[in-house]
Amino acid sequence: MAKIKGAVVVDSEECKGCNLCVVACPTQTLSLNRNVNGKGYNFSYMENPDSCIGCSNCSLVCPDSCITVYRVKTA
């Protein structure tokens, strides 16, 4: 069965840590980092990279367009 794997790359300097992507993620992949970026925000990152399915829900709700989503089909 083909399995879909995804990956999310967050531009951590652009991210304002609004948490909307974390709420929108259906697989609890994303989470806010304990570290802060240059602006002082807890940026979003992939806490559980294995669970990402590349649905791009996070990028749809991101107000700052700082999320890039990748998806591959593995056999």
């Binding site: 990956a7 590349g54 791009s56 989503v69 990748y70 998806r71």
Partner: peptide
Amino acid sequence: IIKPENIVS
């Protein structure tokens, strides 16, 4: 996974 050809969004 993170390759330009796999970008969906």
